[in-house]
């Protein structure tokens, strides 16, 4: 499908990750152009595209409870130099943790950006458990029975240009019982240790930066 009014911005440095997969899903259903946020260099071209678009969708990972620095840089610099004309802005944020509260800051950040820069905030979607998914189709999500139709409803909102309620992503959150949480922490830790061992490391090794000469 071609719909050049919709600009889909991937704010992850990983071009085949979960943020990108979610944008692919949108593109396949309603069209749009996917653009990857560069990690270096100028934002000029991207900003021109943002100004031309009618609808902008930002999809990015959670880094320390909100979007990555490079998106902050784009939005901070842009705001002081460019004007917008009521473009509709939607946000998607996905993180490893299976909760909403650990990622939701990203959407509020976008909402305030929209408010201060003459864009129209249309709501967003928070997806937990995005790290295990690691770019695989949404149908492979641990909670796919709920997540798939709810995310597709979110896409429907973008298509129709209507606000997406936070209820959509709130309903997609799974309540994980204590014993399962404990088991997940053990299983993930087992995986981490196994992969460290492969490289000859141990999680409790002396921290690398403690070994090197003190600066100053």
């Amino acid at each position: 499908m071609h719909n050049f009014d919709i600009l889909l911005i991937c704010a992850s440095p990983r071009r085949k990750g979960t943020s990108a997969m979610l944008l692919e899903r949108i593109k396949n259903l309603i069209g749009g152009e996917i653009v990857f946020l560069n990690q270096k260099g100028s934002f000029d071209e991207l900003i021109k595209k943002m100004q031309k678009a009618k609808t902008i969708v930002v999809s990015g990972p959670t880094y320390i409870n909100t979007y990555p620095a490079r998106l902050f840089e784009l939005l901070e610099k842009e705001a002081s130099n460019y004007k917008f004309s009521n473009q509709k802005l939607y946000g998607i944020i996905n993180g490893g943790m299976p909760y909403v509260h650990t990622h939701e800051h990203g959407l509020s950040y976008l909402r305030l950006f929209a408010k201060e820069n003459n864009l129209t905030w249309m709501g967003g979607f928070v997806l937990g458990g995005g790290a295990i998914l690691d770019g695989q189709p949404l149908e492979k999500h641990l909670n796919h029975k709920k997540v798939v139709p709810l995310f597709d409803q979110f896409i429907y909102c973008i298509e129709k240009g209507i606000s997406a309620s936070k209820e959509l992503y709130e309903k997609a959150e799974v309540a994980i019982p204590k014993c399962i949480t404990y088991l997940i922490s053990k299983a993930l830790t087992y995986k981490v240790i196994k992969s460290l061992k492969k490289y000859g490391h141990n999680p409790d090794d002396l921290i690398y930066y403690l070994k090197c000469e003190k600066e100053n």
Binding site: Y63, I64, T66, P68, A69, R70, F72, E73, L75, E76, K77, M97, P98, Y99, H105, S108, Y109, L110, L112, F113, E116, K178, T181, Y182, I184, S185, K186, L188, T189, V192, I193, L196, P203, I207, Y209
Partner: peptide, 30 residues
């Protein structure tokens, strides 16, 4: 926008390099 400036955010993201890669449970959450 209710967050930090991008100069500080770059450093926050990069501090992850000295994070413990293991997972723990606290107050019933990972």
């Amino acid at each position: 926008y209710g967050g930090v400036g991008f100069h500080i955010k770059k450093i926050m993201d990069r501090i992850s390099a000295v994070g413990d890669p293991r997972y723990y449970m606290k107050n019933v959450e990972l």
